[in-house]
């Protein structure tokens, strides 16, 4: 099985093909609806972003509260298409990878091709199981958003499937 590491520079991912299974290790940032809205606003008003977007990976995830004695609670992916309206803009700023579940709109597919991004899916509805691959969690921004805050996750061998590759090849046709 292919292993990949963050930061995700183009050389590491350009040979990956839609449908391929990979294990990701390194740093990923959680962000979902409201965090995306804020990130785009921050970029438009030229504010400093809470993390470096270049070659970064965003995980569409809002975990549960963290149970005592655990690193993180249940932490599976949320529906990616809700982020479609923002993804093109964020990819243009240097974002490399996105992790979520489900299909993407045509606009995202085109943006992926144009900016050489990549879209992964992971085991949806398996948030308990996925928590095993998270080694540490740190709150980075937008704490007032509660479960929608941006978290920095250190993951080890996080299981992914390439859903849209850098050339726009897609498992969803």
């Amino acid at each position: 099985m292919k292993r990949i590491y963050t930061p995700l520079d183009l050389n590491k991912i350009k040979s990956l093909k839609a449908g391929q299974e990979v294990f990701l290790s390194g740093t990923i940032y959680t962000a979902r609806d409201q965090a995306h809205k804020r990130l785009v606003q921050a970029i438009k008003s030229r504010q400093t972003l809470p993390f470096e977007l270049r070659d970064a990976v965003i995980y569409y995830c809002g975990p549960t509260q963290t149970p005592q004695g655990k690193v993180i609670g249940s932490c599976g992916p949320t529906t990616s298409s809700r982020m479609d309206a923002f993804s093109g803009f964020i990819l243009a700023q240097g974002l490399r990878g996105m992790i979520g579940k489900g299909s993407r709109g045509l606009g995202v597919k085109e943006a992926i091709k144009k900016y050489k991004g990549i879209y992964f899916i992971t085991y949806a509805g398996c948030g308990a199981l996925l928590s095993k691959y998270v080694k540490s969690v740190k709150k980075v921004a937008y704490g007032d958003l509660g479960p929608e805050a941006i978290l920095k996750l250190e993951v080890e061998n996080f299981p992914l499937i390439v859903a849209i590759d850098v050339n726009g090849g897609s498992v969803y046709g």
Partner: peptide, 18 residues
């Protein structure tokens, strides 16, 4: 999916974060 259900039950974790 089946492994997740077993792990959630064993560890007292939510089956899904939602």
């Amino acid at each position: 999916i089946l492994d997740n259900a077993a792990y959630a039950q064993k560890e007292n974790l939510a089956i899904c974060q939602d």
